[in-house]
Design a protein around this nucleic acid. Structure first.
Lengths: 231, 231
DNA sequence: TTCATACTTCGATGATAAACGAAATATTGT
DNA sequence: ACAATATTTCGTTTATCATCGAAGTATGAA
């Protein structure tokens, strides 16, 4: 009679406040260990463990073991997409203060994802690197060409793949909120490190949001033709 | 610290099997009376009434009174979008009868998703619009270019973004049955409305499944190079 | 007015599951 | 080997909420 997929099952999983808190923590795309997720949801590790098991079982999360830590992340981009769609219909304003509202904006605008830059700025900067013909998309990676290598090296970024690390050099990382790719991998990390070093960006007090400084606005414009407008 | 206790609130509303069944019945975009929704969810009118009140309260539904009947429908396209997004990550429901199997096939082939076209046809038509270079993907939207604007305007579609509505003009909506994007937003809705107007598509008796008429097969082929084969 | 239909409110019941303490398992460090 | 840390499993408690019967309100029909 009524249509096929079993909505209620997944929705009820997301519908628990503790699980929802964990899922939101994972929306940044990062994998987090069980303990961190428990803390984020303000519940005991035991309780978190049962929640995580349920979400693994339902295909919402996947698990990677690293020693005694178990890392969890969203199983795929569809899950992130669904969570965001739910957020858009989450009624009036959950936001208790102006400060929280600003924080939320800040996250969408610029944040770190593991160790590289994400959010609107992350995507926009990557776009500029492509447009200026420094990097180009190729499968799941970017390729840094000679022109880009020169430019970024002069800018203070490590442009050689470290031979001992088997980390991907210039991975494409999908930003769910923008649904666009930005630069990750060791190149993305090195570039982001350099931006911190130059104090073009700085960490906001808590969480993973990042602020672009005045020097950053000037610098990104001059070096990469990335013109930011303050909203 | 992290954003949304209300995410859980909405999700838990959708997470009840009875409420989910009612919401899915409303995904076709039509308004239905409380009694019909109770029957669709196989629950008593009293129970349905409390469920509906909760969903009204949370802003998922809106209510119109017509005499002693009260009609309910999805509050806005975002709700429809969120439901579809959840369907993409929901496990399929076992099929119990031939009738259900047929219904499922019809839904996968063509259906309305709140107010725009989805299913094989929805995705295929969107693909054609991209291939014919009328629209192009950009982030989470499509961009309608000059060529597309001319073409669709001539076809009878509203191609201007309504300034007072803050609804997205041409959003990408993830299709649960195809796992691909189709055209949504006010442009998608207007195009779908026009297809109904031309009687190229028509609603099947119950639910949100849609049939492509003979005129539609001819028209879609001639106008958009979309060649349908009857299965 | 009186009856019938559509929906809502109230109260009681029963089932589900979230939470944590206690204890088990697994891994790393000393 | 032993202690420390990270996670899981089990059993118990507790709270929530879906459900429906019964009764109430509102609208339309006879």
């Amino acid at each position: 009679m009524n249509s096929n997929p079993n909505l209620a099952e997944v929705a009820s999983l997301i519908g628990n406040p503790s699980r929802a808190a964990m899922l939101v923590s994972l929306l940044g795309g990062k994998a987090l260990p069980a303990g961190d997720l428990a803390r984020a949801a303000r519940i005991s590790p035991q309780t978190a463990s049962t929640h995580l098991a349920k979400m693994i079982n339902a295909g919402l999360l996947i698990q990677e073991s690293h020693g005694r830590h178990k890392y969890f992340r969203l199983a795929n981009s569809e899950v992130g997409h669904a969570l965001e769609a739910l957020q858009t219909i989450s009624p009036p304003k959950p936001i208790r203060s102006l400060r929280e509202s600003n924080q939320l904006h800040a996250l969408q605008f610029a944040r770190t994802c593991y160790d590289h830059l994400a959010g609107k700025i992350g995507v926009a900067l990557t776009d500029r690197l492509v447009e200026m013909n420094f990097i180009e998309k190729s499968g799941k990676e970017f390729i840094l060409n000679a022109k880009g290598k020169t430019k970024l090296h002069k800018f203070g970024v490590t442009v050689e793949k470290s031979p001992k690390s088997r980390r991907c050099f210039a991975r494409q990382c999908l930003d769910w909120s923008e649904r666009r790719y930005h630069l990750a991998g060791s190149l993305g990390a090195s570039l982001t490190r350099r931006l911190f070093e130059l104090k073009w960006i700085e960490n906001l007090p808590d969480g993973r949001a990042v602020r672009v400084t005045d020097a950053g606005i000037k610098g990104l414009s001059e070096e990469f033709g990335l013109h930011l407008t303050i909203e």
